[in-house]
Computed example of a mutant assay.
Amino acid sequence: MTKKQGVILYGPPASGKDTVTTALNKFDSKYVQFTRLKVGTGKAASYRMVTAKQLRELDAAGDVVYANTRYGNTYAIDRPGVDAAFAAGVPVVHLGQVDGIRALVDGYPADWSVVLLWCPREVTEQRSTGRGDSDTAARLAAWDATRDDLDTHPGMVWDLTVDTTAAAPQDAARLIDQLLAQRAGAATA
């Protein structure tokens, strides 16, 4: 039996995770963005908002696969949410920490394709400013943290690396889809 396939997009802020996910969904509607849990304030539209108590209850039940704090908020990947995302198609999970990748790959059995989306720091600044982010300084600090994270984990292996300053979102989507097709073919061979 073939394992369920999922995609992890890793990269600094404004590296194109949302844009590439939108392109993937347009390429094939089976690709669906995993909606993380969020405890905190600010943007709520692309999160499932929960209280700190609700997150603690999920964690106590063993249903938190990974949680991290950034921008003064807590973000989490929960087992029931990943189950629902797989039921809807091929989940695309956005992460900015190598530890999160490892926690998801080790903590939720599936055939995860891990993709590094990258852009230089000045591009993160330009994109963040261009889209009207009010916290560009925090996003640049997160870019620095992502760079440090990569330097701390030099052995991290990527199934695909995409420079989002050189590849159009639809090209990145096509490459990711090809990667998953190759992995599915290899699994059934």
Rank of each mutant, 00 (worst) to 15 (best):
A181L: 14
T51Y: 04
N68I: 07
D149W: 03
M156Y: 05
S134A: 15
D163H: 08
T146W: 08
Q33K: 15
G62V: 11
D106T: 04
H153G: 03
G132K: 04
A187H: 06
A44T: 14
Y75M: 08
A88R: 15
T2R: 15
G132A: 05
G81L: 00
D163P: 00
D148Q: 14
R174C: 07
L24T: 00
V123R: 14
R131S: 11
A138W: 06
A52H: 09
R70N: 10
W158F: 14
V92C: 10
A67W: 11
A84T: 05
D144L: 01
Q54N: 03
R70G: 10
L58N: 03
L180P: 05
L9W: 02
R70L: 13
V64W: 09
D59G: 00
A84N: 04
R139G: 10
K38V: 00
D18R: 11
L104C: 04
Y108C: 06
G40Q: 00
A172L: 07
D148M: 08
A166G: 02
G107R: 03
L58A: 03
Q97Y: 12
V162Q: 02
D144H: 02
R147F: 06
L24D: 05
L104E: 02
P13S: 14
A168D: 11
S15T: 13
Q170N: 12
A187C: 05
K3H: 12
W158M: 08
T51W: 04
V82T: 01
S128Q: 15
W112P: 13
G130Q: 07
G130I: 05
P13Q: 11
S128H: 03
K17S: 07
Y108E: 07
D149A: 07
K43C: 03
D111Q: 14
R36F: 02
A181H: 10
A103F: 01
W112H: 14
D111F: 10
T69Y: 00
H94W: 07
D63T: 06
A172W: 11
T41P: 00
V20R: 04
G62A: 09
Q170Y: 13
L175V: 06
S128K: 06
G11C: 10
T124A: 13
R121H: 13
T136P: 04
S134F: 08
E57Q: 13
Y108M: 06
W143N: 02
D151W: 02
W118Y: 12
W143F: 15
V162S: 02
T165V: 08
L55R: 03
G107T: 05
A168C: 00
A60V: 00
A137M: 06
A14L: 10
G130V: 05
L55E: 01
Q5L: 08
R131L: 05
A184K: 13
A137F: 00
Q182F: 13
A138L: 14
R174V: 10
V115R: 07
V50W: 02
V93M: 14
A23Y: 03
Q170F: 12
P109T: 15
A44S: 14
T188Y: 01
A167Y: 12
L160Y: 08
L179I: 07
I176P: 09
A168F: 12
P80C: 04
Q5H: 14
V50Y: 05
S113K: 14
Y66L: 01
G40L: 01
